[in-house]
Design a protein around this nucleic acid. Structure first.
Length: 203
DNA sequence: CTAAAGATGTCCT
DNA sequence: GGACATCTTTAGA
Protein backbone atom coordinates (compact mmCIF):
# COMPACT_ATOMS: atom_id res chain seq x y z
CA UNK A 1 0.00 0.00 0.00
CA UNK A 2 1.43 3.34 -1.03
CA UNK A 3 1.34 6.20 1.41
CA UNK A 4 -1.04 8.99 0.46
CA UNK A 5 1.77 11.45 0.05
CA UNK A 6 3.06 9.61 -2.98
CA UNK A 7 -0.27 9.50 -4.80
CA UNK A 8 -0.06 11.69 -7.84
CA UNK A 9 -2.59 14.45 -8.21
CA UNK A 10 -4.52 14.43 -11.51
CA UNK A 11 -2.42 17.25 -12.88
CA UNK A 12 1.01 16.00 -11.81
CA UNK A 13 3.57 16.54 -14.56
CA UNK A 14 4.90 13.54 -16.47
CA UNK A 15 8.29 12.46 -15.14
CA UNK A 16 11.55 12.89 -17.01
CA UNK A 17 11.72 9.14 -17.56
CA UNK A 18 8.65 9.42 -19.80
CA UNK A 19 10.54 11.68 -22.19
CA UNK A 20 13.89 9.91 -22.00
CA UNK A 21 12.87 7.23 -24.50
CA UNK A 22 12.47 6.48 -28.18
CA UNK A 23 11.07 9.61 -29.85
CA UNK A 24 8.44 7.84 -31.96
CA UNK A 25 7.15 6.01 -28.90
CA UNK A 26 6.91 9.24 -26.93
CA UNK A 27 5.09 10.89 -29.85
CA UNK A 28 2.44 8.15 -29.82
CA UNK A 29 2.09 8.12 -26.04
CA UNK A 30 1.66 11.89 -25.83
CA UNK A 31 -1.68 11.51 -27.62
CA UNK A 32 -4.48 11.82 -25.06
CA UNK A 33 -2.24 13.53 -22.50
CA UNK A 34 -3.12 16.91 -21.02
CA UNK A 35 -1.12 19.99 -21.99
CA UNK A 36 -1.22 22.54 -19.17
CA UNK A 37 -0.22 26.20 -19.33
CA UNK A 38 -0.36 28.50 -16.33
CA UNK A 39 0.36 32.20 -16.62
CA UNK A 40 -0.78 34.87 -14.25
CA UNK A 41 -4.04 33.62 -12.78
CA UNK A 42 -5.03 31.81 -15.97
CA UNK A 43 -5.01 28.05 -16.47
CA UNK A 44 -5.19 26.70 -20.00
CA UNK A 45 -5.56 22.98 -20.66
CA UNK A 46 -5.99 20.86 -23.74
CA UNK A 47 -5.79 17.22 -24.75
CA UNK A 48 -2.96 16.52 -27.18
CA UNK A 49 -4.52 15.03 -30.33
CA UNK A 50 -1.73 15.30 -32.92
CA UNK A 51 2.07 14.99 -32.76
CA UNK A 52 5.09 14.47 -34.98
CA UNK A 53 8.41 12.81 -34.13
CA UNK A 54 11.69 14.41 -35.18
CA UNK A 55 14.92 12.49 -34.80
CA UNK A 56 18.59 13.43 -34.63
CA UNK A 57 21.35 12.82 -37.12
CA UNK A 58 19.27 10.05 -38.70
CA UNK A 59 16.44 12.38 -39.73
CA UNK A 60 17.07 14.98 -42.47
CA UNK A 61 13.78 16.73 -41.65
CA UNK A 62 14.88 17.41 -38.08
CA UNK A 63 16.47 20.63 -36.86
CA UNK A 64 18.94 18.34 -35.06
CA UNK A 65 20.10 16.70 -38.31
CA UNK A 66 23.34 18.69 -38.66
CA UNK A 67 24.30 18.56 -35.01
CA UNK A 68 23.94 21.13 -32.22
CA UNK A 69 23.63 24.84 -33.09
CA UNK A 70 22.52 27.81 -31.03
CA UNK A 71 18.95 27.48 -32.27
CA UNK A 72 18.53 23.74 -31.68
CA UNK A 73 20.65 23.33 -28.55
CA UNK A 74 17.60 22.27 -26.50
CA UNK A 75 17.26 19.27 -28.84
CA UNK A 76 20.59 18.03 -27.52
CA UNK A 77 19.92 18.93 -23.89
CA UNK A 78 18.18 16.94 -21.16
CA UNK A 79 14.84 15.24 -21.90
CA UNK A 80 11.58 16.78 -20.72
CA UNK A 81 12.36 20.36 -21.72
CA UNK A 82 10.42 22.52 -24.18
CA UNK A 83 12.04 23.23 -27.54
CA UNK A 84 10.25 26.25 -29.00
CA UNK A 85 11.36 27.71 -32.31
CA UNK A 86 10.29 30.66 -34.44
CA UNK A 87 9.35 29.97 -38.04
CA UNK A 88 8.14 31.83 -41.14
CA UNK A 89 8.83 35.16 -39.53
CA UNK A 90 5.80 35.01 -37.26
CA UNK A 91 5.00 31.62 -35.79
CA UNK A 92 6.17 29.67 -32.74
CA UNK A 93 6.11 25.88 -32.56
CA UNK A 94 6.20 23.78 -29.38
CA UNK A 95 8.21 20.56 -29.07
CA UNK A 96 9.17 18.36 -26.15
CA UNK A 97 12.72 17.07 -25.98
CA UNK A 98 13.08 13.28 -25.91
CA UNK A 99 16.06 10.88 -25.66
CA UNK A 100 18.98 11.17 -23.22
CA UNK A 101 21.13 14.30 -23.00
CA UNK A 102 23.46 14.52 -25.98
CA UNK A 103 21.12 12.72 -28.40
CA UNK A 104 18.88 14.71 -30.74
CA UNK A 105 15.15 14.12 -30.65
CA UNK A 106 11.89 15.97 -30.04
CA UNK A 107 8.15 15.69 -30.55
CA UNK A 108 6.26 18.54 -32.22
CA UNK A 109 2.89 19.15 -30.55
CA UNK A 110 0.70 19.87 -33.58
CA UNK A 111 -2.83 20.10 -32.18
CA UNK A 112 -4.87 19.98 -28.98
CA UNK A 113 -8.51 19.76 -28.03
CA UNK A 114 -9.29 22.76 -25.77
CA UNK A 115 -10.55 21.77 -22.31
CA UNK A 116 -9.96 24.59 -19.82
CA UNK A 117 -9.63 28.33 -20.36
CA UNK A 118 -11.41 28.32 -23.70
CA UNK A 119 -12.49 31.96 -23.40
CA UNK A 120 -8.89 32.98 -22.82
CA UNK A 121 -7.80 30.96 -25.83
CA UNK A 122 -10.43 32.70 -27.97
CA UNK A 123 -8.93 36.05 -27.02
CA UNK A 124 -5.39 34.91 -27.74
CA UNK A 125 -6.45 33.53 -31.12
CA UNK A 126 -8.92 36.30 -31.94
CA UNK A 127 -11.56 33.84 -33.06
CA UNK A 128 -14.74 32.37 -31.61
CA UNK A 129 -14.43 29.06 -33.42
CA UNK A 130 -13.36 26.40 -30.92
CA UNK A 131 -12.27 24.02 -33.65
CA UNK A 132 -9.85 26.67 -34.86
CA UNK A 133 -8.14 27.40 -31.56
CA UNK A 134 -5.34 24.83 -31.54
CA UNK A 135 -5.65 22.63 -34.65
CA UNK A 136 -2.16 23.37 -35.91
CA UNK A 137 1.29 23.86 -34.32
CA UNK A 138 1.34 27.67 -34.57
CA UNK A 139 -2.34 28.03 -33.65
CA UNK A 140 -1.68 25.92 -30.58
CA UNK A 141 1.19 28.08 -29.33
CA UNK A 142 -0.89 31.19 -29.91
CA UNK A 143 -3.91 29.78 -28.05
CA UNK A 144 -1.73 28.66 -25.14
CA UNK A 145 0.36 31.86 -25.09
CA UNK A 146 3.56 29.90 -25.66
CA UNK A 147 6.50 31.90 -27.04
CA UNK A 148 10.25 31.52 -27.24
CA UNK A 149 10.45 33.00 -23.77
CA UNK A 150 9.63 29.44 -22.65
CA UNK A 151 12.30 27.80 -24.81
CA UNK A 152 14.22 25.36 -22.61
CA UNK A 153 11.52 25.37 -19.91
CA UNK A 154 11.61 22.22 -17.76
CA UNK A 155 8.29 20.41 -18.27
CA UNK A 156 8.71 18.13 -15.25
CA UNK A 157 8.33 20.88 -12.65
CA UNK A 158 4.58 21.48 -13.08
CA UNK A 159 4.89 25.23 -13.34
CA UNK A 160 4.26 27.50 -16.31
CA UNK A 161 4.08 24.71 -18.86
CA UNK A 162 3.84 20.95 -18.47
CA UNK A 163 2.10 17.79 -19.60
CA UNK A 164 0.07 15.50 -17.34
CA UNK A 165 -1.67 12.17 -17.64
CA UNK A 166 -5.34 12.40 -18.59
CA UNK A 167 -7.59 11.90 -15.56
CA UNK A 168 -10.09 10.14 -17.83
CA UNK A 169 -8.02 8.14 -20.31
CA UNK A 170 -9.83 6.50 -23.21
CA UNK A 171 -8.95 3.83 -25.70
CA UNK A 172 -7.48 5.73 -28.64
CA UNK A 173 -7.36 4.90 -32.31
CA UNK A 174 -3.91 6.14 -33.34
CA UNK A 175 -3.45 6.98 -37.01
CA UNK A 176 0.01 7.51 -38.51
CA UNK A 177 0.83 9.40 -41.70
CA UNK A 178 3.71 11.26 -43.30
CA UNK A 179 4.77 14.46 -41.59
CA UNK A 180 3.41 17.78 -42.79
CA UNK A 181 5.28 20.76 -44.20
CA UNK A 182 8.67 19.16 -44.79
CA UNK A 183 10.60 18.63 -48.03
CA UNK A 184 13.06 15.94 -46.94
CA UNK A 185 12.59 12.77 -44.92
CA UNK A 186 9.01 12.69 -46.15
CA UNK A 187 8.88 8.88 -46.27
CA UNK A 188 8.92 8.45 -42.49
CA UNK A 189 5.37 7.85 -41.11
CA UNK A 190 6.05 9.86 -37.98
CA UNK A 191 2.91 11.97 -37.71
CA UNK A 192 0.39 10.61 -35.24
CA UNK A 193 -3.13 11.70 -34.43
CA UNK A 194 -6.28 10.47 -32.74
CA UNK A 195 -8.50 9.03 -35.46
CA UNK A 196 -11.73 10.94 -35.99
CA UNK A 197 -10.88 13.71 -33.55
CA UNK A 198 -12.26 17.02 -34.85
CA UNK A 199 -9.40 19.07 -33.42
CA UNK A 200 -6.71 17.50 -35.63
CA UNK A 201 -5.14 19.86 -38.22
CA UNK A 202 -5.77 17.61 -41.21
CA UNK A 203 -7.33 14.17 -41.44
C1' DC B 1 28.14 39.49 -46.12
C1' DT B 2 24.20 37.98 -48.78
C1' DA B 3 20.62 35.09 -49.97
C1' DA B 4 17.17 31.66 -49.64
C1' DA B 5 14.35 28.48 -47.28
C1' DG B 6 11.54 27.41 -43.61
C1' DA B 7 8.22 21.36 -38.81
C1' DT B 8 2.56 27.84 -40.95
C1' DG B 9 -1.74 30.48 -41.08
C1' DT B 10 -4.86 33.43 -43.45
C1' DC B 11 -7.10 35.38 -47.03
C1' DC B 12 -8.21 35.26 -51.81
C1' DT B 13 -9.86 33.19 -56.28
C1' DG C 1 -5.48 25.51 -54.89
C1' DG C 2 -2.32 29.65 -54.62
C1' DA C 3 -0.26 34.08 -52.93
C1' DC C 4 1.71 36.29 -49.30
C1' DA C 5 3.16 37.95 -44.75
C1' DT C 6 7.61 38.37 -42.08
C1' DC C 7 12.26 37.37 -39.93
C1' DT C 8 15.55 33.99 -38.08
C1' DT C 9 18.86 30.72 -39.18
C1' DT C 10 22.06 28.61 -41.98
C1' DA C 11 24.81 27.80 -46.01
C1' DG C 12 27.66 29.53 -49.21
C1' DA C 13 30.44 33.27 -51.53
Amino acid sequence: MRPLSSVESPSAPLARSFYERNTVLVAKELLGKLLVRRFGSAVLEGIIVETEAYGGKDDPASHAYRGPTRRNRVMYGPPGHAYIYFIYGMHNCLNVKTKPTGQGGAVLIRAAQPITGIEKMKKERRTERINDLANGPAKLTQAFAVTRALNGHDLTLGRKLFIAANAKPEQLEIVSTRRIGISVGIEKPWRFFIGGNPFVSKQ
